[in-house]
């Protein structure tokens, strides 16, 4: 299984390593460090310092910008308190973005899992030509979200594309140009509900990312020994029961991984939507990633842009931090 290959061994290399080397290259060691261990730290230090500055330092800097008054072309780092955040949460566009992100994320993750699991089970049936099918479902993963966006804006264009086939059934969805909000109710200054237009973007994103969950599930299915299914069959379980009671529970860790990775892709999504639809009428396909880009780099509202970025980071952290910490703990 994918997981076992990746977990790796955890035991220390030698006794000397255990006692001698300190976590922080800057701290004074308590015991003598061998030359090799100094070289090892020298290998790691440049990357670690780069990450500390470019990831953690810059996040702190962005946080600082987000509470500043820098909403013009000229940097202004005077303290503004939470003004920019308060502005955003009262902003029509940002409220719409949060709504769109919620529905995009749920639909996107749900469909990627259902499609990936379904197709991987079908491919795992020892059918002839399974590698052809696998390659067809996986190739969109090699494409850029920009390419996907450019192509799908035509496929889901209301006046052409798939609508030419759907005309046979007499339905002509308006896809990403639809401004309806399904099951909507007043929430802040927007209507909260499923924006129909977001479905078009979800379809394009699912087309691109299904290969990911397919590959993950396929690796998982290949890791389940045949004897296990055989044993369940001997006990009189039907094929459906085997999947429900034996195989799906065993694939649970993979599902968790897929959810986490898809969630972080979906919460920060920018290029697909920027290339395919843009913000849309009434911001029906707008997301924080697009708003951040436009307000910062097209409108020079740097502090507002920084505040959006920090909110995006916090949303992602809600998924990622517990995941990283539990992985670390189970690794030890």
């Amino acid at each position: 299984m994918a997981e076992q290959a990746v977990k790796g061994e955890e035991h220390d290399y030698t006794e000397r390593n255990k006692t001698a080397v300190q976590a922080d290259p800057g701290k004074k060691p308590r015991r003598k460090i061998s030359k090799d261990q100094w070289v090892a730290l020298g290998f790691l230090a440049p990357s670690f310092i780069l990450v500390l500055i470019f990831v953690y330092g810059f996040i702190g800097w962005t946080g600082w910008v987000s509470v500043s008054n820098w909403n013009t072309l000229v940097p202004d780092f005077s303290f503004a308190g939470l003004k920019n955040y308060i502005y955003l949460f009262n902003d029509y566009r940002f409220q719409a973005d949060l709504r769109n992100t919620v529905f995009f994320t749920i639909l996107f993750i749900g469909l990627v899992i259902v499609m990936g699991l379904g197709l991987s089970i079908l491919i795992d049936q020892k059918l002839k030509g399974e590698s052809i099918f696998r390659n067809i479902f996986l190739f969109p993963m090699a494409l850029s979200f920009v390419v996907t966006g450019v192509v799908w804006q035509w496929l889901l264009n209301p006046s052409t594309g798939y609508n030419q086939f759907l005309a046979v059934f007499g339905i002509q969805p308006k896809w990403y140009t639809d401004t309806n909000i399904l099951a909507g109710f007043e929430w802040g200054s927007i209507e909260f509900g499923l924006p129909v237009a977001i479905i078009a973007v979800v379809i394009a994103a699912v087309w691109q990312m299904t290969g990911f969950s397919l590959a993950m599930y396929l690796a998982g299915l290949r890791g389940i020994p045949d004897e296990l299914r055989e044993a369940a069959r001997m006990d009189g379980a039907s094929e459906l029961q085997i999947y429900k009671k034996v195989i799906l529970p065993m694939l649970m860790p993979i599902t968790v991984s897929v959810v986490i990775i898809m969630a972080h892709i979906s919460l920060k999504i920018f290029d697909l939507i920027y290339a395919m639809t843009g913000s849309g009428a009434n911001f029906v396909t707008d997301v924080p990633g697009v708003y951040m880009f436009e307000t910062t780099f097209r409108g020079n509202y740097y502090a507002n842009g920084a505040a959006i970025a920090i909110i995006m980071l916090l949303l992602v952290a809600v998924f990622i931090v517990p995941y990283l910490l539990t992985n670390r703990r189970s690794g030890n």
Partner: peptide
């Protein structure tokens, strides 16, 4: 292991959150 986790986190951040300083 801690250093590894600290580095790994950088993989998941939305790059918008470092873009202005960068």
């Amino acid at each position: 292991e801690l250093i590894f986790t600290v580095i790994l986190f950088g993989m998941f951040i939305p790059y918008q959150s470092i873009l202005i300083p960068l």
